Simulated scan of single mutants.
Amino acid sequence: MLELSPLRKNKVNLSDYNSQQDIDNRIMLADFTIFEHRVLEEILFSSLRASLKKFCKSLDCSESEALPVLQKLAKAGLLTIEGDSLLVDKEMRKYFEFQMTRFDEEINPDMEFLQGLLRKVPIHVLPTWYAIPRTSSNIFESILEKYLLSPQIFHRYLTDLNISNTKLHAIVQEVFSAPQLQVASSDLIARYNIDRREFEEMILWLEFNFVCCLSYQKEDDHWIEFVSPFYEWRQYLLFLQNSTPPAVSSEKISALRESDFAFVEDITAILRQAEKNPISLDSWDQGNLIPPDTARSLASLIELRPLTELHTAQKYVTQAIKKLCLVHLTRIIDGRLHPAESAKDWLQLTLENKASYLHR
């Protein structure tokens, strides 16, 4: 779940550009059928001026089938129909080319996608939205450095983000709590009783604030729209989710030592013993457990529980000695464990600082 703060004032204002037309087009595309998508794709791959008859022939459809779709696209500003000619607006074609990447399952809504999203906004607005210098030579790089440079920086940005709209806040929490970090738009619209236009406006605001975005997955003869975090952040969270080890029941845990710094104290005791009299490890193969006699002796030294099984004591003491060698506090010379030069200074540290040193 994503924790959001009510403190940070947001500066993204959708009225700073023609967001209403953007929302109209997004709603239109979300409702498109597979055939309507084919018509749009054909326009995007065709020249700026095309014959209607040749256009329909390449789609293997009649003019009566294509015209309703073309009229929708004409209303959206992508083209004009003059007799048998289709005249495509160059700038609007760029806009729809970008929007269609949402439907390409081989293209992820990543940082390159985000850069395309920001290009829809007048460039003079971006410094205001994202509090970056107007003198920046590359606005996107400045945004990247300020908000997206590392997982820690981006997470801090998200936790400071203010989402005052309760429904929008709930949508974000649901998306970030979902097992695969994505939720179908239809489910969110129904669950929170939101009309389509309000929903598109909410998601557009989330996109410009780098929180979530829309993408589509094809299923049979239609598209399913999903809300999810941007690709890199979603992959990072899924990695953490899948690599975090499961919790171990406290009933299965048996404490060998009661002190909070027991391992540090035990290592200290072994190191002091090595100072007085180097510990014999003559027959120890470092890939195995230390010999039973040495394990018993050191277990008694550190006052390991009397009922601890020998094998458990061997594993614990072996781990302690390996750690001492790993952090260069001891050395094995001629089959004996000797303190290293750094041991004397380490022994003077507090338990907390000793623990910090061992954690390296």
Score class of each variant (00 low, 15 high):
residue 124 H to D: 15
residue 115 Q to F: 06
residue 122 P to L: 03
residue 106 E to Y: 09
residue 100 M to F: 09
residue 110 D to S: 07
residue 69 V to F: 00
residue 57 K to T: 09
residue 122 P to R: 02
residue 93 R to V: 11
residue 58 S to H: 06
residue 52 L to K: 04
residue 114 L to Q: 05
residue 60 D to R: 09
residue 62 S to Q: 00
residue 116 G to H: 00
residue 56 C to P: 07
residue 108 N to K: 14
residue 102 R to P: 02
residue 54 K to Y: 09
residue 102 R to M: 11
residue 58 S to M: 11
residue 99 Q to T: 03
residue 56 C to Y: 06
residue 61 C to N: 12
residue 90 K to M: 13
residue 59 L to C: 03
residue 123 I to K: 11
residue 109 P to L: 04
residue 110 D to P: 06
residue 109 P to M: 04
residue 79 L to W: 06
residue 70 L to D: 01
residue 90 K to S: 15
residue 84 D to C: 14
residue 116 G to R: 02
residue 92 M to W: 09
residue 52 L to I: 13
residue 75 K to M: 13
residue 86 L to V: 04
residue 99 Q to D: 11
residue 83 G to Y: 03
residue 101 T to V: 04
residue 117 L to A: 12
residue 60 D to V: 05
residue 87 L to F: 11
residue 64 S to R: 11
residue 127 P to R: 04
residue 65 E to A: 15
residue 111 M to C: 01
residue 75 K to Y: 15
residue 80 T to E: 15
residue 75 K to C: 08
residue 102 R to I: 13
residue 113 F to G: 04
residue 66 A to C: 12
residue 79 L to V: 05
residue 64 S to M: 14
residue 121 V to K: 01
residue 103 F to T: 02
residue 122 P to N: 04
residue 87 L to Q: 13
residue 59 L to P: 01
residue 98 F to D: 01
residue 85 S to M: 11
residue 123 I to A: 12
residue 100 M to G: 03
residue 66 A to F: 02
residue 79 L to E: 00
residue 118 L to H: 04
residue 77 G to F: 00
residue 128 T to K: 13
residue 70 L to A: 03
residue 53 K to R: 15
residue 105 E to Y: 08
residue 98 F to C: 01
residue 97 E to V: 05
residue 87 L to E: 15
residue 126 L to Y: 00
residue 81 I to N: 08
residue 97 E to H: 08
residue 84 D to F: 12
residue 116 G to M: 01
residue 127 P to S: 06
residue 77 G to V: 07
residue 91 E to Q: 10
residue 101 T to W: 00
residue 57 K to R: 13
residue 97 E to W: 05
residue 86 L to I: 14
residue 93 R to Q: 14
residue 101 T to S: 07
residue 103 F to G: 08
residue 112 E to P: 00
residue 94 K to V: 13
residue 127 P to I: 05
residue 66 A to W: 01
residue 105 E to R: 10
residue 73 L to S: 03
residue 65 E to W: 09
residue 84 D to H: 12
residue 76 A to K: 00
residue 83 G to F: 08
residue 60 D to S: 10
residue 87 L to M: 10
residue 65 E to K: 14
residue 92 M to E: 05
residue 73 L to P: 05
residue 102 R to Y: 08
residue 65 E to V: 15
residue 127 P to L: 05
residue 117 L to P: 04
residue 52 L to R: 08
residue 96 F to L: 08
residue 107 I to S: 10
residue 81 I to F: 11
residue 102 R to L: 13
